[in-house]
Design a protein around this nucleic acid. Structure first.
Length: 771
DNA sequence: TCAGTGACGTTTTTT
DNA sequence: ACGTCACTGA
């Protein structure tokens, strides 16, 4: 944005400082240079909040207020962490070693590895993702003889996760009596034991056990609290209780000093007591992770938590044109906001927000693809265009249309690379190499490829292992001594044990990670089994596995303090989130981005499409049931505010779900957008209309309902304007036209004089005036 | 033990 | 429509 003056290398410090602050306005500068004490940056969408945090990071290093490794910067995703590091280094014009820039989960994993023994784990613990822990929950439920039809593992798992995020132990859950609670408590406590004996932590444990580490071992907490001179946290509105506690424990340096009197106070002495150099950035209007335990009160109560906090508000938006912002502002005004903000921009009005109504999801996809092609013809790059949707499943129809039209795209999230069966199988072998107690990994590895070890043998093996207090891995080596295991199964088990031993020997002799993975794939027989399948799917899996090897080689090539260890590789794969992966290869000019609204947070694109703007999709029906309407609205708000120049919302009259096509109603959020900023058109095709209009009644009813809700007095006659065929009308964008037909309730066909085009417009949205 | 078959539930969202 | 899961026969 701003021009920066490059001072010649080794030039004056003041020049570089100016550069670090270049392009920032006054409030942003203040946030960047804020010295001691807590700082809350309340920043609206597109206000450059992450940029401010990044500049602050660079500024702290530059001004020597902290050594690089004394700064802890917490981002929401690993991708954001990488970007922050790159940008900070670009600002400083040098690479910086030792900076702690990572997600909460990564930071916690790092600290827990350093002190695992204090909590009864070994540093080689495995990190279980959701699927892994669901398997364990399922095993536990089976051992409890619970009907998994009535109580699904997923339900119990999510409740355990909730409890963990609220820092409740199994015992504490139990205190609330009742049938389900009792089951929950029992499952929780057994699940916990299972994980502990597997030397495994789930995602929630990473946070919860860090809290425990700090609370039970004040000397450890002191060490880190004193070590980190400055803490920066992005997306603070999405922190949960456990994360909040970690922040408090790290930020309270005074208590840390008291707790650890042995520590030298050197620099501490100069600081006022209670100084907490904590800078958090967030926007309560973008809090969209409540389902995961995020508590927006953390940001709302910041000033109460840190009474000496300075608060800086950033409301100017540098991203979007005013029409887009007006639409977003109007939408979010329907929420009971605790910290109302009104975004404004100097970028001009721009184009109106467009809403298009299509027949079904296929027509919607075709239409979006057509519009994308128009944008490309107009000079937009593929990488400047994004399509958002509420659920991952919605990407498929769109992908098909993009493939048909040979438009390259990258799919963020969805069937994530690391969650694919073959990748998880390969990782299971690797995990067993460092953590032989990992039971989930053992059960995976032993089953792929088939080794003649079936369910019954495994059940006996597990029972015996539990009885003897041995790990499955240990037992596998002497499988014939396990009662009830057949000779064939025993041979298979010994084979696996021997393979693992042989691979471990190579680790000991210092093999490269990539090479080790390749050897594992080869010698386990995984590749051979897939080759034998001889199907296109199997070929794809082989390619994925090859990618895994390539990934390890790539990671090993990155500059790092130490060579890539298998442990670090596994940790990265466990914590590497959705955001990384590109499904289809990017073309030479980049690719269109496809992502869920959740994954869209933190991004921006000149052209944004949001598809499926229907009741039940956004807001999602499950969310409505659970009373999460305001969070859904914030989610939609996040989507709207990603758009820089063109925002295009679409919806389908019919949509396929649960194996049947059914009629939809327009999202209530569309009704909440101001008519003045919106250009709506129905693109339901001729010949379809007779049928669709009749069937459309629910949707039409929805439109009328909203038309009634918004009285026609608010400076517009747009909604519900009564027109007849032959009337001359004026449209904000298309100018003068004549009504050529009435098209069902609320829709008119208008032929415009300017370009001769004939368009179907919804009177509710199109701000038509009679001439 | 395992491949093949049919019934069934599935869809929020993610570190 | 699709993947998962339980059941069945070899």
């Amino acid at each position: 944005m701003g021009q920066t003056v490059i001072i010649k290398a080794g030039g004056g410090a003041s020049g570089r400082a100016e550069e670090l602050l270049g392009g920032l306005n006054e409030p942003q500068r203040a946030a960047v240079t804020h010295g001691e004490g807590p700082l809350l940056i309340l920043a609206g969408a597109g206000s450059g909040k992450t940029r401010v945090l990044t500049h602050r990071l660079a500024y702290l290093v530059f001004s020597g207020q902290a050594a690089p490794d004394q700064i802890l910067a917490i981002t929401f995703t690993n991708k954001a962490a990488r970007e922050m590091r790159e940008r900070a280094e670009a600002l400083l014009q040098r690479s910086v070693q030792g900076l702690w820039i990572a997600t909460f989960h990564s930071v916690c994993a790092r600290m827990l590895r350093a002190h695992a023994e204090l909590l009864g784990y070994t540093p080689s613990f495995t990190i279980y993702d959701q699927a892994d822990s669901r398997r364990v929950v399922k095993r536990v439920l089976e051992s409890l003889d619970v009907d998994t039809k009535r109580f699904a593992p997923a339900l119990l798992q999510s409740r355990i996760s909730q409890a963990k995020n609220e820092l409740l132990s199994a015992g504490e859950v139990e205190r609330s009596r009742g049938g389900f609670e009792e089951l929950l408590a029992e499952t929780y406590s057994r699940y916990e034991r299972e994980l502990q004996s597997a030397n495994a932590l789930d995602f929630d444990d990473l946070l919860r056990l860090t809290v425990r580490l700090f609370e039970r071992h004040p000397e450890v907490r002191s060490r880190y609290a004193l070590h980190f001179r400055h803490i920066l946290i992005d997306e603070y509105q999405d922190t949960n209780l456990a994360q909040y506690r970690i922040v408090r424990l790290l930020a309270d340096r005074t208590a840390a000093v008291r707790a650890d009197a042995r520590e030298e106070l050197s620099a501490e002495e100069e600081k006022p007591p209670g100084a907490r150099n904590l800078a958090v950035v967030g926007d309560d209007a973008q809090s969209i992770y409540g389902f995961r335990g995020a508590d927006v009160r953390n940001i709302l109560d910041f000033e109460a938590d840190f009474p000496e906090a300075r608060v800086i508000r950033l409301e100017q938006n540098y991203r979007s044109t005013q029409h887009i912002l007006d639409a977003a502002n109007a939408l979010i005004a329907n929420n009971s906001a605790a910290l109302p903000k009104r975004l404004w921009s100097e970028l001009g009005a721009g184009e109106p927000v467009r809403i298009s109504e299509l027949e079904d999801e296929h027509a919607e996809a075709r239409y979006v693809v057509g519009e994308i092609e128009r944008q490309l013809e107009g000079g937009r790059a593929l990488s400047e265009i994004a399509v958002f949707y509420r659920t991952n499943a919605m990407s498929r129809v769109l992908e098909e249309a993009l493939v048909r039209n040979q438009i390259p795209y990258r799919l963020i999230g969805a069937a994530r690379f690391y969650e694919r069966a073959e990748i998880k199988d390969a990782l299971a072998y690797l995990s067993l190499l460092v953590n032989p107690r990992d039971s989930v990994a053992f059960l995976r590895a032993v089953a792929t490829p088939r080794r003649g070890v079936g369910a019954s043998s495994l059940a006996r093996l597990q029972a015996y292992a539990a009885e003897q207090g041995l790990s499955l891995c240990e037992l596998a080596a002497s499988a014939e001594s396990v009662p009830g295991v057949s000779r064939g199964a025993a041979r298979g088990l010994r084979e696996l044990a021997a393979l693992l031993d042989s691979l471990r020997a190579r680790i000991a002799s210092g093999i490269e990670v990539a090479e080790l993975i390749a050897a594992t794939l080869r010698e386990s027989g995984m590749i051979a089994a897939l080759q034998a399948e001889d199907s296109p799917e199997a070929q794809g899996r082989i390619e994925n596995l090859e990618q895994l090897v390539a990934l390890a080689a790539e990671l090993a090539g990155e500059p790092a303090a130490e060579p890539l260890s298998l442990e670090r590789f596994l940790e990265q794969t466990a914590l590497a989130g959705a955001a990384e992966e590109a499904q289809a290869a990017d073309g030479p000019d980049g690719a269109v981005t496809l992502t869920t609204l959740h994954n869209a947070k933190g991004s921006e694109y000149p052209v944004v499409f949001i598809i499926g703007c229907e009741e039940g999709m956004i807001p999602h029906s499950r969310a409505i049931e659970e009373g999460g309407l305001e969070e859904e609205r914030r989610l939609f708000y996040v989507g709207l505010t990603r758009a820089m120049r063109l925002l295009h919302l679409t919806r389908a009259l019919r949509r396929y779900s649960f194996g049947a096509s059914s009629y939809t109603m327009a999202s209530r959020f569309l009704d909440e957008l101001p008519a003045e900023q919106v250009l709506a058109e129905s693109l339901v095709q001729e010949g379809w209309q007779g049928a669709s209009r009749r069937a459309l009644r629910p949707a039409a009813g929805g439109l009328q309902r909203s038309a009634g809700r918004r009285p026609a007095g608010a400076g517009t006659v747009g909604c519900g304007l009564q027109v007849a065929v032959g009337d001359d009308v004026l449209h904000d964008l298309f100018g003068e036209g004549v009504v050529t037909a009435l098209d069902g309730p609320g829709a008119v066909v208008v032929r415009f004089a300017s370009d001769g085009s004939e368009r179907t417009l919804l009177t509710e949205y199109a701000n038509l005036r009679r001439l």
